[in-house]
Amino acid sequence: MSDTINLTLKLWQQKGPNEKGRFLTYEAKNISTHASFLEMLDVVNDELMEKGEEPIAFDHDCREGICGMCSLVINGRPHGPDGGITACQLHMRKFKDGETVWIEPWRAKAFPVVRDLVVDRGAFDRIIQAGGFVNVNNGGAADANALPIPKRNAEAAMDAAACIGCGACVAACRNASAMLFVAAKVSHLSFLPQGAVEKRERVLNMVKAMDEEGFGSCTNGGQCEAECPKEISVSNIARMNREYLAASLSSS
């Protein structure tokens, strides 16, 4: 149970959004294979601090795959080599002794680097502000059972709503497109009668906001689905495209 490995880490260091970044090479010794990837980084950061050096900044919070805060590209893959999980759920047993591990931030024009491995994903919040909601004030809602919703619709809405807003889809995409993120929200709400009312305005406004943030176009590469920790389907993108087309044609 005391299995340990040694790794050569290539850690991205960047003081600020306008500074030049570089890779710091660090020899991580005696890393337990039972540790999580972020716990490995904790150990490395503590060692750096003990040496009087500054630790590498990285975003993290819940460490159980649901808050969407962690955002590491590990050996070229958002959230690392294991599928269907976030970086915080990745464990060191997935790495071989002596391996070199490259650790980088999300790279996208719309996600500027704040520092080291930390990026600014405020663009996602602004897209939601443009229409990722149902226009309903608090209070006065009808009884929840007054509006029956077919189980399959509720399930399909839930599949799309499982998005954690981490941005791995953008990081994975060669065009840094945010289509999967936006489509997941559009689908979630239009599967439900509550959301369907404003479906037309929503898709137009959210896509407009997405374009304004500087995300790239979708060219159907499918990397987003492959790297999504919640395995959200690209079929949502097709659905959003249909909705967008219909909304554009019916616009007055």
């Binding site: 909601f133 149902v134 309903v136 608090n138 209070g139 809602a141 009808a142 009884d143 929840a144 509006l147 919703i149 077919p150 189980k151 509720a154 399930e155 809405a157 839930m158 709503a161 979630h188 709400l189 599967f191 439900l192 509550q194 959301g195």
Partner: peptide
């Protein structure tokens, strides 16, 4: 529950 349903929270059905 009513309010969250109105917002589009996909409760199990």
């Amino acid at each position: 529950i009513d309010q969250c349903t109105a917002q589009g929270v996909p409760f199990a059905r």
